[in-house]
Design a protein around this nucleic acid. Structure first.
Length: 553
RNA sequence: GCGCCCGUAGCUCAGCUGGAUAGAGCAACGGACUUCUAAUCCGUAGGUCGCACGUUCGAAUCGUGCCGGGCGCACCA
């Protein structure tokens, strides 16, 4: 909507003030904090000051005279040192309400726009254990980011990279195998740096029941370990999928690292890079010239013992993504991997893509608090607290909302007490309550007047004159822009703020106005229409996050 | 030592491609339920935007330096 307004303003202005074209890119259209300052404001006059060499106020006055008569605006004002404030006409807002009512839980979506195809890779946890809180945060951030990009018109593929090829999978196999053997020989040695979690014992027990003979009859221990590794990997991958389902996160593509090696993808990528003269040999190892693209030093991709580094697999993986033809890709990583980014970026750039083809969002640590104390370990398992444990303790919606609400690049303190609190302290309930209240109004409306949400009613929207009503309409009108902006800036956490603000405007309205008005049916219908719009917009936002739209609380 | 991130109200955080008196929630204090759910609303109080320079009509926002906290600097994955 902002861009439509901007274009409209520019078209008219250019005819009168040609200098405007010089500053076109710098023009900012924004929604002022104070509604008295208009529905939109712009800094055009300040930008023109330097070129035209007149004070901003004077220029603003000239622009006001030009734009004032456009039908989109009811009023144009000059304010402050030269701000231009625009007031939109009622008809404009009414058309937005119709959209909100008609589009259901897909308000403002631009899926048809077809802006391009992108890939978002997230979670990508090693299948060597259950998901932890950091994974959960990454999952929520990645999911919402995917949702808002597809909202704005991108085709988004969500991908989980399965690290099923390296040493840690081997270690998993050794750990399971050792626990398996310990069932019969308690003294069987456990690998020093093995996985100690209880889930390893669970897997071993399951194997013992199902495959005891098979494993014991295997010729070499190596085979048995590999068998255990494979079994464990699949078992844990299923667990990971279950855990993700708990917070409503799903993937389109599960990409196996092992697949890269088994299908010669690594050699293929290396061959491609060799042709680009990006690779050399030194000390018996193969090196990639990542310094060309800004890395601190060149990196080994094949060790002197002939095996590939993790980096090599990752290069092949991204080479594969590159050949799938995405317009750009986004990776979501734990912040402890940020030092790894320059080398991957260099590798990717050597394929021949621009620097901003690959973006990485870093997820900072999640710290858990209870009774004012940091909780580090789970009492149940003696290990780190898992995502599943947290969801079981506080519920899905608070977990999603809290993980989603902070900028991913800042540390997150998760307070279990607040998440459990069913009160004003808890923002999740605050937004859900707004939805439940509207549902409640419509339940009552059905009983007393036979009107429900499915009733196809039109109404006289010009009756919505109250400040509270206008404030809601204005905000609804702005929401599609705000979601677009959140996507563009890779800031999925903005969605919770938008939801909260809408809920807040609604609660304020609810406390000061009645909706079911016996003696003024026209006004009642207009207000119910507005509520229906708010409800749909809330559902749109809830759907993006995966929050449940509760009907009653 | 080098690199990345963070430092905004007592607490948790928004705001950061420069823009109008720096925002919200919690905590504190005071109000609003015979009414469609008070899990709500209204009000009061609370700030050298880590510090210092610089850039300019204008800096929480951009630049440089410093201070404090987190993380990373493998022929590991």
């Amino acid at each position: 909507m902002k861009s439509e307004i901007k274009n409209q303003i520019l078209d008219v202005l250019k005819k009168h003030i040609p200098e405007v074209s010089q500053i076109e890119d710098k023009i900012v259209i924004e929604i002022p904090k104070d509604e008295k300052l208009g529905d939109f404001s712009t800094n055009i006059a300040f930008l023109l000051t330097k070129i035209i060499k007149k004070p901003p106020v004077q220029i603003a006055g000239q622009i006001k005279d030009i734009l004032e008569n456009l039908p989109t605006f009811s009023k144009v004002e000059v304010a402050g040192a030269g701000f231009l404030n625009f007031f939109l006409s009622d008809n404009f807002y009414h058309s937005i309400l119709h959209k909100a009512v008609n589009e259901g839980d897909r308000f403002g979506e631009q899926r048809e726009k077809n802006k391009g195809k992108i890939n978002i890779e997230f979670v990508s946890a090693n299948p060597t254990g259950p998901l932890h809180l950091g994974h959960g945060r990454g999952a929520v951030v990645g999911k919402i980011l995917s949702e808002i990009y597809s909202y704005t018109g991108y085709k988004v593929e969500r991908e989980f990279y399965i690290n099923d090829a390296g040493n840690q999978i081997r270690k998993l196999g050794e750990s399971i195998y050792a626990r398996f053997r310990q069932i019969e020989e308690p003294d069987y040695p456990f690998p020093e740096d093995g996985y100690h979690g209880d889930y390893i014992k669970d897997i071993a027990k399951e194997l013992y029941l199902l495959e005891r003979e098979k494993i014991l009859s295997m010729l070499s221990e190596d085979d048995a370990v590999e068998f255990c590794a494979n079994y464990g990997k699949n078992y844990l991958l299923d667990k990971i999928k279950e855990d993700l389902k708990l917070i409503d996160v799903e993937f389109d593509i599960w990409y196996s690292e092992k697949h890269l090696y088994e299908h010669g993808k690594v050699e293929e990528a290396i061959k491609f890079l060799k042709e680009k003269d990006m690779i050399y040999e030194k000390d018996g190892a193969l090196w990639l010239k990542t310094t060309i693209y800004g890395d601190d030093k060149d990196r080994v991709i094949r060790k002197s013992d002939g095996s590939y580094t993790y980096f090599a697999g990752d290069i092949a993986y991204h080479f594969d993504k590159y050949r799938r033809g995405y317009d750009f890709i986004i990776n979501i990583w734990g912040s402890d991997h940020h030092g790894y980014f320059p080398r991957l970026k260099a590798a990717v750039m050597s394929f021949g893509v621009p620097e901003d083809w690959i973006k990485v969002l870093f997820i900072q640590l999640v710290k858990l608090f209870k009774n004012g104390q940091e909780v580090k370990m789970s009492k149940r398992s003696g290990d780190f607290i898992t995502l599943r444990e947290l969801v079981e303790e506080v519920g899905k919606d608070p977990v999603i909302y809290f993980f989603a609400s902070k900028d991913s690049d800042t540390h997150l303190n998760f307070d279990i007490d607040i998440a459990l609190e069913k009160s004003s302290e808890n923002p999740v309930f605050y937004v859900q309550y707004a939805h439940a209240r509207i549902s409640s109004v419509f339940r009552e409306a059905k009983e007393r007047f036979g009107i429900d949400l499915e009733t196809d009613f039109t109404s006289q929207l010009q009756l919505l004159k109250e400040d509270a009503e206008k404030s809601i309409m204005k905000y609804i009108a702005a929401i599609p822009d705000l979601i677009n902006e959140a996507a563009l800036k890779n800031q999925p956490h903005k969605i919770t703020g938008i939801t909260y603000e809408l809920a807040s405007r609604f609660h304020k309205y609810y406390n000061t106005h009645k909706f079911l008005i016996e003696d003024d049916k026209e006004l009642m219908m207009a207000r119910l229409y507005l509520l229906k719009a708010v409800k749909n917009v809330l559902r749109t936002l809830f759907k993006i996050m995966g929050i449940t739209p509760v009907e009653r609380m």
